[in-house]
């Protein structure tokens, strides 16, 4: 599955990373090398093998429905790029 420059631009956009033509070209070279490494997998027959998401075969633990958190807005917003009236500010969201 060879990558092309359009793939690079598409995935960069999906990942919300601005990329110029020159970066796209050098990224293409490097990513193609990495994908070449990954391609080795395709030679393996994996039919019927259950995918492994976690190393331990365990069940999700459940948390009691009890409020444990307190308001820390001031602390959290002290490190925010832009806030006002307790809100995080971003350029206008258009629907």
């Amino acid at each position: 599955m060879a990558l092309n420059i359009e793939d690079i631009k598409r995935i960069a956009h999906l990942a919300r990373i601005e990329i110029n033509e020159q970066e796209a070209a050098s990224t293409l070279t490097k990513l193609s090398g990495i994908l070449g490494l990954i391609e080795q997998m395709q030679a393996v027959n994996t039919e019927g093998i259950v995918p492994m998401s976690h190393s331990q075969d365990l069940a999700q633990r459940l948390r009691e429905d009890v409020v444990t958190e307190v308001n820390q807005r001031e602390t959290f917003q002290a490190i925010a790029p832009m806030t006002e009236h307790g809100l995080y500010l971003v350029p206008k969201v258009i629907e």
């Binding site: 809100l87 971003v90 350029p91």
Partner: peptide
């Protein structure tokens, strides 16, 4: 929620 109109030209985010 996105809150509009609190600040001109911006959206406010309430989590």
């Amino acid at each position: 929620k996105s809150v509009h109109g609190a600040v001109e030209g911006m959206s406010g985010i309430d989590l």
